[in-house]
């Protein structure tokens, strides 16, 4: 089964070490995600594409306990098979905090400050039978 990213331009794929694609302000150095023109920090209008770090620490988290509405959600929404998933903000040192799915959904195993690493996870299967993938962060073992 072929794998396709949920969208182009948000993370590098295919790749052995995928990275999120962000922007960096040419004027003040502020980092942004996803890619955007214009800097919310200094109001500068010029930004350049930058690949973001793959590791950081968990700044906060929750667990999505019920199936999201579809659309927009592309994953499993069948209440019988839906699996809760973690969501959090991961602080990438010197850059910014990224909102992301987490591979861990057990509140006992999620701790603010824990080390996290970016991974690619399956999300759904599209009409052509391809596996659609998106990014997530996983606890560093």
């Amino acid at each position: 089964m072929a794998q396709v990213p949920v969208t182009e331009g948000v993370f590098t794929w295919p790749s052995e070490s995928p990275q999120l694609i962000g922007s960096r302000c040419v004027t003040c150095g502020n980092h942004m995600f996803p890619v955007q023109q214009g800097c919310p920090k200094c109001t500068g209008a010029e930004t350049a594409e930058v690949l973001l770090g793959r590791r950081g620490t968990l700044w906060t988290w929750t667990v999505q306990g019920f199936p999201p509405k579809a659309p927009p959600y592309a994953g499993d929404v069948d209440p019988k098979t839906f699996k809760a998933f973690g969501v959090g903000y991961v602080e990438l040192p010197g850059q910014l905090k990224i909102e992301s799915r987490l591979t861990e959904a057990d509140p006992e195993k999620l701790k603010i400050g824990m080390e996290m690493e970016m991974v690619i996870v399956p999300l759904s299967t599209d009409a052509d039978g391809n596996e659609v993938v998106t990014f997530a962060f996983a606890p560093v073992a």
Binding site: V6, T7, V10, P34, Q64, P68, P71, P72, Y73, A74, G75, F85, V87, E99, S100, R101, L123, V132, T134, F135
Partner: peptide, 11 residues
């Protein structure tokens, strides 16, 4: 972007 809701983050 559509990817945001598709990935389960638009709640």
């Amino acid at each position: 972007g559509d990817w945001y809701g598709a990935s389960g983050l638009a709640l």
